[in-house]
Structures are given as structure tokens and as C-alpha cells.
Computed example of a mutant assay.
Amino acid sequence: MPALTLRNALPTDAQRCFDIETSAYEGDEAATLEKIATRIAQYPQGFLILEENGEVVGFINSGCAHNVVMSDEAFKELVGHDAEAPNVVIMSVVVDPAHQGKGYAKHLMTAFVQRMETLGKQTIHLMCKQQHVPLYTRMGYTYVRPSPSDHGGMAWHEMVMCLEGASSH
């Protein structure tokens, strides 16, 4: 079994994360190097890196908002992000195509959820393509609606997870 480690992103990770992002996403879907560097700089707590034997093989990045508007393109640059806000918005969940099929995305997501619970967050929001809806449903997300966003010229679906630690009042 390879040695897997999880850690928060550092500015020096931006290029490798960008390389993985562009290899895993099609065309306009991929975040730019600038966006990735911004996400690392502004919210490293929400930028989780997965390493296999010391090599970065995947990551999740996110921001936090008081009012989540999933189709807000500016939020992808963390415009309106507030690290103290209770709602987490996942921007990317990416595993290097050379390392896909090993359960790494699920490993990342599970660890990410635990970290967000520890930080006292209430909800985690994400957008995914139709083929990933069942996967996220199995992970505990609830389908919200088709998204008005046409990011990258694709159809997206909004999903949400309410965290255990969230207070109900």
C-alpha cells in the first residue's frame, strides 16, 4: 500500500495542482494557475492536498460563504470568501488521471468533511456533472437542483451535505 499523506496546500504547490487540474478537467472547466494560487493564499485550511509517497496526486479546494450562490463565477476567485462563514463551497476535487481508480477522491472527500466538521462548518456545497451525482449521493450529499451555471459549457448539478456538528438552531 502506498504511503498516503494529507496536508494543507502551500504556495509552492500551485503549479503541480494546476498541472493536475488541467489534466483532469476539460478546456474552460479547469481553474487557472492564478485562481489556484489565490485559493492557496486565501484559504489554505480549505485546500487539502493528497500525496502518495511524497508526490502530490490530488487535491480539494474550497471557499466559505454566508450565503451560497453556486453559480457566482467571482466566488471562484474567492471574491466574497469569509474563512469564518459556516458554509463551505468546494471548487475542485481532482485526482491525477494517472492515479485515478484507487479510491483517492473518496479518501480526500472523507478527510475534507472531517476537517470541515472540526472547523465547525455547517454545510458543504459542490457542483458536479450528472455522472457524478450517484457517487456524491453515496458519500452523503443531497441533490439540490440543476445549476444555472454553465461553467465550461457544461450542465452542472448542485449538491449539499449538512454536517453532523451543525447546530439545528
Score class of each variant (00 low, 15 high):
107 H>V: 10
107 H>F: 08
108 L>K: 04
108 L>W: 08
108 L>V: 08
108 L>C: 04
108 L>M: 04
108 L>R: 00
108 L>Q: 07
109 M>D: 05
109 M>C: 14
110 T>R: 12
110 T>M: 06
110 T>Y: 14
111 A>N: 10
111 A>T: 04
111 A>V: 10
112 F>W: 02
112 F>E: 01
112 F>C: 00
113 V>T: 01
113 V>I: 15
113 V>P: 00
114 Q>P: 03
114 Q>E: 15
115 R>Y: 07
116 M>E: 03
116 M>Y: 07
116 M>V: 09
116 M>A: 01
116 M>I: 11
116 M>H: 04
116 M>W: 07
117 E>S: 13
118 T>F: 12
118 T>P: 00
119 L>A: 00
119 L>Y: 12
119 L>E: 09
119 L>K: 07
120 G>K: 12
120 G>A: 09
120 G>Y: 13
121 K>Y: 06
121 K>P: 01
122 Q>I: 11
122 Q>E: 14
123 T>Q: 14
123 T>K: 15
124 I>G: 02
124 I>H: 09
124 I>T: 11
124 I>Q: 06
125 H>L: 06
125 H>V: 03
125 H>Q: 11
126 L>W: 05
127 M>K: 11
127 M>T: 13
127 M>V: 12
128 C>E: 07
128 C>Q: 08
128 C>L: 09
128 C>N: 03
128 C>G: 08
129 K>I: 15
129 K>R: 15
129 K>D: 13
130 Q>P: 05
130 Q>R: 15
130 Q>A: 14
130 Q>M: 06
130 Q>L: 13
130 Q>N: 13
130 Q>E: 15
131 Q>Y: 10
131 Q>W: 07
132 H>G: 00
132 H>E: 10
132 H>N: 12
132 H>Q: 12
133 V>C: 02
133 V>E: 06
133 V>A: 07
133 V>L: 05
134 P>D: 00
134 P>T: 04
134 P>G: 02
135 L>M: 12
135 L>P: 01
135 L>G: 00
136 Y>I: 05
136 Y>C: 03
136 Y>M: 02
136 Y>L: 05
137 T>C: 05
137 T>E: 08
138 R>I: 00
138 R>S: 11
139 M>H: 03
139 M>Q: 10
139 M>G: 02
139 M>P: 01
139 M>T: 01
139 M>L: 15
139 M>R: 07
